[in-house]
């Protein structure tokens, strides 16, 4: 299963490296969302205060496009059918696609965080670095797992573009809440202290564990036809 996962992940990342869809389309999209937030909230002090939330909100919007992209690759030319026909373990496909998605999300989040520091003058402090890294790892894993699960469900059906946000956004709400609060604590936004952030990391970890197990079990029945 892990070997299959590694192969699938490597394949997905190779496709993304060569096609450059993520770097040429998704990253600029995320950047323009960040600029739009600044237009919508107008004053500097407001965007500085809500910067962590905006980073995660922009991540969620970009997640939707990344997931669509991840499964558009599979449904074109009936690639999923071929994988299934070849008797590839669905759990391996699930983990592999989730790993590839997590890698792309991690790059995206770093860019968004950097944008927030530059554009919104978000505070940044070294004392919260451990918490910040842990939060980003946990939230990225959570988003990648859930994104892959619901992406697999919506893949290959009519109206998937509109169905995916409806299914995915309610499920990732705990990640938005948890990651935002933990990031605020790590960065010290609005005087938050680092110690407050760890309970949120706990929530994110529970999320990852539940959807990791649940997704591995559920993905097979979802993509079977």
């Amino acid at each position: 299963m892990l070997r299959v996962a590694r192969l699938i992940a490597a394949k997905d990342l190779r496709i993304e490296l060569r096609s450059r869809v993520v770097t040429n389309q998704v990253l600029p999209f995320a950047a323009i969302v960040m600029v739009m937030f600044a237009f919508a909230f107008n004053t500097d002090s407001v965007v500085q205060k809500v910067a962590p939330g905006l980073v995660w909100l922009a991540t969620l919007f970009s997640l939707l496009t990344l997931v669509q992209r991840s499964f558009a690759v599979e449904t074109a030319d009936g690639a999923t059918d071929a994988l299934r026909g070849a008797g590839v373990d669905p759990a391996g496909i699930f983990l592999g696609k989730a790993i590839a998605l997590a890698a792309q999300l991690a790059v995206l989040e770093l860019v968004l965080l950097f944008t927030a520091v530059v554009l919104y003058s978000a505070e940044f402090r070294l004392s919260g670095l451990v918490l910040l890294v842990t939060t980003f790892v946990a939230a990225t894993c959570g988003l990648a797992l859930v994104g892959t699960l619901y992406g697999g469900l919506a893949a290959g059906v009519r109206g998937r573009e509109t169905l995916l946000p409806l299914l995915l956004l309610p499920v990732v709400a705990p990640v938005l809440i948890g990651a935002t609060r933990a990031t605020e604590a790590a960065l010290g936004t609005g005087g938050a202290v680092v110690a407050d952030g760890w309970s949120w990391v706990g929530l994110l970890t529970v999320f990852v564990a539940l959807f990791g197990v649940g997704g591995t079990l559920a993905f097979g029945p979802l993509i079977e036809e």
């Binding site: 699960l149 469900l153 299914l167 309610p170 499920v171 709400a173 705990p174 809440i177 948890g178 609060r181 407050d196 309970s199 949120w200 929530l203 529970v206 999320f207 539940l210 959807f211 649940g214 559920a218 029945p221 979802l222 079977e224």
Partner: peptide, 27 residues
Amino acid sequence: RRSAVVALLAVLEIPLVHFSVKLWRGL
């Protein structure tokens, strides 16, 4: 099969949402 899996995933999701919102409001 598809809808049954989604219904069971909702059982996973709802307690998490409830717990996270509670934690959020609690602070």
